[in-house]
Design a protein around this nucleic acid. Structure first.
Length: 565
RNA sequence: GCCCCUGUAGUAUAAUGGAUAGAAUAGAACCCUGCGGAGGUUCAGAUCUGGGUUCGAUUCCCAGCAGGGGCGCCA
């Protein structure tokens, strides 16, 4: 990166001498699509008006005048572009030495001001955990890793939905049927909830019974409270199993039931400030002028709706945790909800209300359509996990004669790799169509593909039986594929920066794929261990650096870079 | 009805307004006496429609069409 900048400066300097504005050059200078075209390209369109010539003429004129030397090996006009070729060993030396020096910190950004809280996962207790929820967990956990690596202080938060109608429905059915849990209690509870909703659809008269349960719950009736606590814990245990398996962590846990009092107080303050008012027995906030409709912040039966609890939670985040930036990872169907929430926080007067951000993502769909618990076509996380593990254990056993424990552990790392990568490699604004067959196929653009590329590089390093060092002859790395690989490695720090500031983990996933593809290309075309000694040393360093960058990139996605698989 | 998001090979996707739209899967043909075939090589295949802005549009703007989501007491 450092020397990449220096290379850019050399080019800027050369063009400045010919009377081209330096800042202009910096803003438009680009990397050609194919490295055979050069290391940097200057598009001459921008000068066309000022110089009153066609871009092609300008390009050839400039290329003729510019002098080669001092790190710049060649200047060539290609159509409307002036392309620059840098001294190759200059680039590889700076990049590879940089990776060598920083190792697992290569790509990390400097410390940045401003405490951020990222809230994600937010599961409902008493409900099933399916692959749709996995997308949220992948996005949130990866974003946090990326932002931290980029230098931000980030608090990872979970917000458990442990009260409300869904809990009442589940407990109502549980009591009605009097069934006892079998197997994983949390998962079993999720199935009870599905049965409950199906039962409710059959007969309208059950609604009264459920409403009765809800009221007894909110009144903290002793017996009901005990059942709530017990069953809630089953769900929490199940969630923690999932988080543990995925290697996902939270710094703080908030619970829906803890927000009720604060929510009531907040709504009172809203009324005092004249932001909220009474209407038809309910308390509402009119945001019609903002184009955000009218919303209910206090129900006519005296209970508190979902959004008001978010007021209370936001107050805690701003006042107790003193955060400056507030990120919510939540599905796109709640976009209006968050626009309303942020607007009210702003009207209320929170200074950092403008620094609230809803990272919305689209649904995980099935080939036949939307997933729906009601219709029973949901892919449960646990089912997917088990299928993946079965398939992967078989694959690992085919290749290695390892003890069962190691097979298990490696299969798990690959399974997590497949899941996380699958959820992250695509833009979050687009829906993911979930096809189990494809998720069990580990070829192509998948996590295991990247992990495999890494494992092969590590294998070369193992077999070399020679210490890798940075004191090599960099000019020996002259093959096209070697230089392309070096240039890809050079990009990593800027990719991290871009992914963090645009909050797009998918950029890191795509980048890992690019590096893995190039690494495979290199692996097939260029022999390392059979090369002459000096050349082998240089190539070993490149292999080592590539593995390091893949490892750094994968870890930002929550994926283990395996040495053997 | 109004608001938001998305339209790229058969399928699912990538591309700060720039060079030949890049990969993947499925299809066809190949490569283990070459550092791990969970690989690699070759062939074939795509920007919803119509306007506009621009030297230049997959990208930005407008209008349509198609799909998804949302719109005062669900979360």
């Amino acid at each position: 990166m450092l020397m990449g900048m220096a290379g850019k400066e050399l080019v800027v300097g050369l063009l400045k001498k010919e009377g081209v504005d330096g800042k202009l050059v910096e803003s438009v200078l680009e990397v050609p699509p194919d490295s055979s075209l050069g290391d940097f390209g200057f598009p001459c369109f921008v000068l066309s008006k000022e110089w009153k010539k066609s871009p092609q003429e300008i390009a050839s004129e400039l290329a003729g005048k510019l002098k080669v030397g001092k790190g710049v090996r060649e200047v060539k006009a290609v159509g409307p572009y002036v392309n620059f070729f840098l001294e190759v060993d200059l680039v590889s030396e700076s990049v590879l030495k940089d990776v060598w020096k920083k190792k697992e910190r290569y790509g990390a950004g400097g410390k940045k001001k401003g405490k951020v809280m990222v809230e994600y996962s937010q599961p409902n207790t008493h409900k099933e955990f399916h692959v749709g929820h996995l997308r949220n967990v992948a996005l949130g956990s990866s974003l946090i890793k990326i932002m931290r690596f980029d230098g931000k202080e980030v608090i990872a938060a979970n917000y458990i939905n442990d009260t409300g109608a869904h809990v009442a429905k589940c407990l109502w059915y549980l009591m009605k049927k009097g069934t006892k849990p079998v197997g994983n209690k949390g998962e079993w509870l999720g199935k009870v909830y599905v049965e409950a909703t199906q039962e409710l659809e059959k007969d309208d008269s059950f609604k009264g019974e459920v409403s009765d349960v809800l009221q007894r719950l909110e009144a903290h009736e002793k017996e009901m409270d005990a059942l709530w606590k017990e069953t809630r814990q089953w769900s929490l245990d199940a969630f923690n199993d999932v988080y543990g398996w995925l290697g996902v962590e939270f710094d703080v846990w908030f619970y829906d039931h803890e927000m009720i009092e604060g929510a009531k107080k907040f709504v009172e303050k809203l009324e005092k400030k004249g932001i909220a008012k009474e209407s038809e027995g309910a308390i509402i906030v009119d945001l019609e002028n903002e184009g955000l409709h009218t919303l209910v912040v206090g129900k006519s039966d005296g209970t508190i709706p979902y959004i008001s609890k978010d007021f209370a939670l936001a107050s805690i985040k701003f006042e107790k945790f003193m955060i400056e930036e507030n990120v919510y990872v939540v599905g796109s169907e709640q976009e209006l909800h968050f626009r309303q929430l942020f607007k009210i926080l702003e009207l209320f007067g929170f200074k950092n209300a403008k620094r609230c951000f809803h990272l919305s993502y689209d649904l995980v769909m099935l080939p036949e359509g939307k997933m729906s618990s009601r219709l029973g076509n949901v892919v449960l996380f646990s089912d997917l996990k088990n299928e993946l593990m079965d398939s992967l254990k078989g694959e690992v056993e085919k290749r290695h004669d390892w003890p069962a424990k190691r097979v298990d552990s490696v299969a798990k790392d690959i399974a997590v790799g497949a899941l996380m990568f699958g959820m992250l490699c695509q833009d979050h604004q687009k829906s993911i169509v979930f096809d189990l067959k494809e998720w069990l196929n580990f070829e192509g653009e998948t996590g295991p593909y990247v992990q495999y590329a890494h494992a092969r590089l590590r294998s070369v390093l193992r077999k070399a039986k020679k210490k890798v060092g940075a004191g090599v002859d960099f000019s020996l790395l002259s093959e096209g594929v070697e230089l392309e690989l070096v240039k890809l490695l050079e990009l990593f720090p800027s990719k991290v920066d871009e992914a963090a500031s645009s909050r797009r983990p998918s950029l890191i996933a795509r980048y890992c794929l690019d590096v893995a593809q190039k690494a495979n290309d290199f692996y097939h075309r260029v022999p390392v261990l059979k090369a002459e000694k000096k050349l082998m040393e240089a190539r070993l360093l490149l292999v080592w650096a590539t593995a390091q960058v893949l490892c750094n990139g994968l870890s930002l996605l929550g994926i283990v870079a395996l040495d053997e698989m």
